[in-house]
Write a protein that binds this DNA or RNA. Structure first.
Lengths: 228, 228
DNA sequence: ATAAATTTAGACAGCCTTGTCTAATCCGTC
DNA sequence: GACGGATTAGACAAGGCTGTCTAAATTTAT
């Protein structure tokens, strides 16, 4: 049941490097062991830092935890907005462009290290820190979903899609893009690039069957026949 | 941070009643506090039982935990199969029947007490008990998804739907039905009946836009216009 | 009513964890 | 090379938790 205690390769140099190293290790350990199951010695060992240094930097276990969550929330949101800015507003190939967008979203925001950690911490500790995670909810889904919805609304307005409610469509787009990754997410796994692509491809195809224009300007070239 | 310690209403009578009471309380506490955060005294208090009785029944904390997970997995699977058996094979009103099915699935299997607890335990402790949750994966999604897919395949074969890959369609059906409940689930909340209905309605409409027959035998009566 | 089985409260040892303290050491800078 | 801040190992007290044990009380079956 005990985990390896070898310091994470190179001992970090400098004050800030130590801070970063602690944040990294703490995210990892809190995520793997849950708040109650994690202990400071584990984090110190994994960060290649002494226990006292952690107390010097963060005060106590709970403050450290809160710092981790805020940090992850911030970084994840930044990633999501960066990815949203790559939304295909003037698609050349709607299906291919949306698939690529869905893959970017998954790979850079959902399946990556930060995304995985934040998701797990929210699921595991969400009920114990209502205000902290309410903050995440407002800053996260509360801001990203409308942003995505706005992009879909623009795409619909430009005649590429046939959408009544862009908010619903945005949520469904994300749900479809992830539909085949749910079980993996549940168990804390990281899907392979291929699984991400598969899920995105199937999801976007279904999305376009539902919301694509029936007879677009240039006839729908990419039917459900295209190979994987 | 301490939780209420009042025994859960009536002290139970009889050996089996105590066993059940312990299982109930343990599920609740493990789910709320995580395995590491839960302690036997909490569970004993919540079950209205002495600590020693728990040890008499289950040996130790880990065995108790495993018993809870197996119990929840079994009950949830039973519920899911029971619900699958109500799948509308001969729908009178395809949209309404699928919405009702999606609502049943959510209310009876996903949002209910057992479903919520099992989901949380999988998310929280899945990585720590790989074999235990692999078992769940095989018995759960591994058996329920194909069962649902088979029903959709039958519906497609009977001419009600236009589906190439029933497995993909089944996963997407579930993903769409839950699309608007994700954030609530993440934070451990329980959606209201109305939220469940909304999500199912929107999800099924999108599903039918994607997979419904364009010109079915009797013309599509229920377009995307129907009120909530 | 009596006997057997179960449950109970409480005490207990052993262990782990948090957070503090100290004295020695490291590191970059002047 | 000497200084000052940061870091380190290690010891430490206080407290929490698990799992065991006991003797008494309670329940159930006979």
């Amino acid at each position: 049941m005990k985990h390896d205690v070898s310091p994470d390769s190179i001992p970090p140099r400098g004050h800030e490097a130590k801070r970063a190293s602690i944040m990294d290790a703490a995210g990892e350990v809190f995520c793997r062991e849950s708040f109650a199951g994690a202990n400071i010695d584990m984090i110190a060992a994994e960060a290649g830092v002494s226990r006292q240094t952690i107390y010097n930097h963060h005060g106590d276990k709970e403050k450290l935890f809160v710092a981790i969550v805020r940090d992850l929330t911030e970084r994840c949101n930044a990633g999501i907005f960066a990815t949203i800015s790559t939304f295909p507003d003037q698609p050349k190939d709607l299906e291919a462009d949306l698939i690529a967008f869905a893959v970017r979203m998954n790979r850079n925001c959902i399946c990556n290290r930060d995304g995985k950690f934040l998701r797990k911490l929210i699921q595991t500790e969400g009920e114990r820190y209502p205000e902290l995670f309410a903050e995440w909810r407002e800053q996260g889904p509360g801001r990203t979903w409308p942003a995505i919805a706005a992009r879909f609304a623009r795409l619909a307005h430009a005649g590429f899609l046939d959408i009544e409610d862009p908010d619903v469509a945005a949520r469904q787009f994300l749900a479809l893009a992830n539909a085949e990754l749910q079980t993996t997410f549940m168990l804390g796994g990281t899907p392979t690039d291929d699984e991400v692509l598969q899920s995105a491809t199937h999801g976007v195809r279904t999305f376009l069957r539902a919301f694509g224009k029936r007879q677009p300007a240039d006839a729908q070239k990419h039917s459900a026949l295209a190979g994987a």
